[in-house]
Amino acid sequence: MANIKIPTPLRAYTDNEAQVTAEGSTVAELLQNLIQQYPDLEQHLFNEGKLRSFVNIFLDDEDVRFLDGVDTEVAADDELRIIPSIAGGLD
């Protein structure tokens, strides 16, 4: 069981909880368990089964893209944080 911090706009889908727990031994398993608990999160985190490009997962302040991506192993007391990359502009 690891803790996951939810970004402010998505707390509307976690009963307004900023911090939730999920089960799994990798980032992918934890995220899968998270969206099983809170299905409305899925479309905002994933697109066609893949993490959206602007969604970053940090494990104890390190971007998992620089570890083993969603295959990164997670210990029971680790802190995961979901962080959107804010971007905007003209087409």
């Binding site: 970004p7 402010t8 970053n56 940090f58 302040d61 971007d63 944080r81 962080i83 959107p84 990359s85 804010i86 971007a87 905007g88 502009g89 003209l90």
Partner: peptide, 15 residues
């Protein structure tokens, strides 16, 4: 001139 972005660290700090 047509793009704006912040870092994830900006988000963490501001939250």
């Amino acid at each position: 001139y047509h793009r704006y972005a912040m870092t994830p660290q900006n988000w963490m700090k501001m939250e």
